[in-house]
Amino acid sequence: MSTYNFDYLDELEAEAIHILREVAGQFEKPALLFSGGKDSITLVRLAEKAFRPGKFPFPLVHIDTGHNFEETITYRDKMVERIGEKLIIGSVQESIDQGKVVEQTGKNASRNALQTVTLLDTIAKHQFDACIGGARRDEEKARAKERIFSVRDEFGQWDPKRQRPELWNIYNGKIHKGENIRVFPISNWTELDVWNYIRREKIELPSIYFSHERDVITRNGQLMAASPFLNMDDEDVVFRKQVRFRTVGDMSCTAAVESEATLIDDIIAEISASKISERGARLDDKVSEAAMEDRKKGGYF
């Protein structure tokens, strides 16, 4: 191991590990937000590289919309058992039952927006001062301007005009009581980087990322998994299709793409050639040109 071959994945990895260790060093009660998606799975791998053979200096937190792909939950529980770290679950169903949020109605109803309230409640309840997330700057143009250490006020809001300058590799994590920081260690990774890393590290993923046959319907020009969580009516025709998912979110707003990709190599080839960006398969971004910016200001991840 005396040769020095530091390629782009090594550099991205080393940067992310540095950021995770800064979180450990600068905060009293950090948490890692775990969605079961490939980005947060990558974060878990990076945390292992940052802190093993020690324990993680933070628990994993899953904001559970109750509208999950079953495969994600199975994966989550298996993984938590393997790594032996603590998992905290914040339940959107509980927020609904407590009357804190109201379930949307209508054809495009989704629990995606409700997650924000549950997330903020969970942060407040456990007094988390830093929440690590798997967001990347290449996902969306509002995210392209977000800092790696991004301050949220007491109401969980992001103020794009009051962002702190972030220079060199120095991260200012100082906050006032009630505020918290969202930390994005893989800010500088692209979707393709994440996949190449998953391939290199041989990281196991939930099966829905790979091609499988499933009952779907067409909604707003996109393929949605037919499920009890989707408000369907007589106009919705259910059919079988060979699909996979490019992101793992709430079942009611995560669209599938037609795909034959059963192996990581197939997926990487598919993405390299792909002409639709990852968030293009998220109905929640389509509302307006500033959709993501608005949701982030309101406390969304």
């Binding site: 782009y8 700057r137 290449d138 143009k141 509002a142 392209a144 301007k145 794009p160 005009k161 962002q163 800010s187 500088n188 692209t190 393709l192 980087d193 040109e289 500033a290 910016e293």
Partner: peptide, 29 residues
């Protein structure tokens, strides 16, 4: 327009913050 991320910037047609953009070729990221 590709690099103007925030609403205020789109409205005013100016870049007011640092935006990070990513691309790669066969040789480099």
């Amino acid at each position: 327009i590709l690099t103007d991320g925030l609403r205020a910037e789109r409205e005013q047609g100016i870049t007011i913050d640092v935006a990070y953009k990513y691309f790669q070729t066969e040789k480099r990221k």
